[in-house]
């Protein structure tokens, strides 16, 4: 009966049949189930056509080869989002058009950072334009490709153009005004729109699992004998949260991000304003891009560590801050703007 070695019809039929059956079981059926049983979360849908177009540019340029968009349910992914991703986060994804399939945005490689919350982490359009034009203008160590074809050089800058202040070393001989093309604007609109949406009331997010978590990491710069209250590693936090704009040398970027080196605000004996800016963001200076409120997601001691790092590096010689000081200011800020800054 099972004379596979003599009956080619039976052999091919059986091998093909079993494979088809297993494929339906392990791929098609689960795919269909997950597609049908998940509704998009309120607010997770790309809000407008420009953002959708931006996602298509993201796909065209092959960004998914290096950037994931999935926060896994393990401790180490906490840095990429407030909660693990759930199927509903992706439920809005559809075929792009008749030609192109659903964008494969989860990704399989993290050569560059995860982008699930890039809009939260880096809301500055100016930064994104500079970064796309040539990543090394803002992140010296980056190996991301430059995308100059998303920009054009014009003789006169229009009223709504975001002109880029590009250093000569990153221009290829061209002295015109560099402005983003429509594609760049769409792509940046997409990027700054990326953030995890809150789960609807009553739903709790799945927990991060401490999967065989390595024993608590001993910070690279173990607290010296003099440090009364051990703050986290300020330099590392600065790298993660501030360096992309203010740069490793604290000098910022001319025409885009202000220097912290010998800055009056940073070195002020009364650090109230500095902490306030970290907590609430800042938009008081015409000549620079807007500073987002990055403090909302940082703890008091983390903010204290960052501020201390800023106040004692690059020749700055101001006194260190304590977590208590940050806590006090956070409370003041909260009472001043009750309601608006509840998040």
């Amino acid at each position: 009966m099972f004379d596979f070695h003599e009956n080619h019809q039976l052999l091919v039929g059986t091998a093909g049949g079993i494979f088809l059956f297993l494929s339906l079981l392990i791929a098609v059926k689960p795919a269909y189930t997950v597609q049908e049983n998940n509704a998009p979360l309120p607010g997770s849908l790309p809000a407008n056509a420009e953002i959708r177009a931006g996602m298509n540019v993201f796909i065209e340029e092959g960004c998914v080869a290096c950037h994931t968009q999935q926060v896994r349910n393990i401790d180490m992914d906490k840095m990429w989002g407030g909660r693990p991703g759930i199927p509903a986060d992706y439920a809005w994804r559809q075929r792009i058009d008749n030609l192109r399939a659903t964008p494969s945005t989860l990704g399989t490689e993290r050569t560059g950072p995860d982008l699930t919350e890039i809009g939260e982490r880096q809301p500055s359009e100016t930064w994104h334009y500079l970064h796309l034009f040539n990543p090394r203008t803002v992140v010296k160590e980056s190996i991301m490709p430059a995308h100059p074809w998303l920009f054009q050089s014009v003789a006169t800058v229009g009223q709504y153009d975001n002109e880029l202040t590009v250093l000569d070393e990153y221009r290829s001989g061209d002295r015109g005004h560099i402005v983003p093309t429509e594609k760049a604007r769409q792509l940046v609109a997409y990027l700054v729109s990326l953030k995890q949406v809150d789960l609807p009331g009553g739903t709790t997010a799945p927990p991060f699992i401490a999967y065989k978590k390595a024993s608590p990491t001993v910070g690279a710069n173990a607290p010296g004998p003099g440090a009364a209250t051990a703050l986290p590693d300020g330099a590392a936090l600065y790298t993660t949260h501030c360096q992309a704009c203010h740069q490793a040398n604290g000098e910022g970027l001319k025409g885009a991000f202000p220097p912290l080196k010998s800055s009056a605000v940073v070195n002020d004996a009364n650090a109230e304003l500095l902490v306030q800016i970290i907590l609430q963001g800042y938009n008081a200076r015409e000549e620079y891009a807007v500073m987002p409120a990055i403090g909302a997601k940082l703890s008091d001691s983390e903010i204290a560590a960052i501020a201390t790092h800023e106040r004692t590096s690059w020749g700055n010689k101001a006194a260190p801050l304590t977590a208590d000081f940050v806590k006090k200011i956070r409370e003041t800020v909260k009472t001043e703007t009750t309601g608006t800054a509840s998040r």
Partner: peptide, 30 residues
């Protein structure tokens, strides 16, 4: 060889048919 061919054909069809590939369905198939 015969099985490889049948499986590859099945696989291409399943990988490209769109009916179950919206939302996270795409990722299962991927």
């Amino acid at each position: 060889m015969l099985a490889g061919l049948v499986w590859a054909i099945t696989l291409s069809v399943i990988g490209y048919l769109p009916f179950y590939q919206n939302g996270l369905g795409e990722t299962v198939i991927q």
